[in-house]
């Protein structure tokens, strides 16, 4: 097993509504989806956004799409109404999650030629 950023096995996109962010996490390969469900938990996601004031994470599963949708309350420092962040919408936050949350996988489960293999 190797430990890699979520970015090695999944992609996603962030959106905002008020002070709430939603971030999708989509497995590149659907066979990795059970692994994501097991390892990418509400608690672990909440920890990534704690420093921003996040208070609660709700996880929704979409097995047909090999996707998970995370709704993160209070993650946007007030959102576009009030945030002093250059990115008040939190559009860049998908890559905070993909970069900081790690998962344990077998090396063979990464796409061939993945930069994370070297």
């Amino acid at each position: 097993m190797i430990e890699v950023p979520l970015h090695a096995v999944a992609h996603g996109r962030a959106g905002d509504k008020g002070n709430r962010s939603n971030i999708s996490v989509i497995a590149y390969d659907e066979t990795l989806y059970p692994l994501l469900l097991e390892q990418v938990t509400e608690d672990r996601v909440l920890r990534i956004f704690r420093h921003r004031g996040a208070s609660k994470v709700t996880r929704y599963e979409l097995p047909n799409l090999a996707a998970i949708n995370f709704v993160i309350d209070d993650a946007l420092e007030g959102g576009v109404n009030a945030s002093l962040n250059l990115d008040g919408h939190g559009k860049t936050l998908s890559f905070l999650l993909l970069g900081e949350l790690t998962v344990r996988v077998e090396a063979e489960q990464l796409p061939p030629g993945s930069p994370y293999l070297s």
């Binding site: 996109r13 989509i26 709700t58 799409l65 996707a67 949708n69 709704v71």
Partner: peptide
């Protein structure tokens, strides 16, 4: 993949 990202864009409870 492109369609899945957009389905969940700005969506809360799917």
């Amino acid at each position: 993949a492109t369609v899945t990202e957009q389905i969940l864009y700005e969506m809360h409870d799917p």
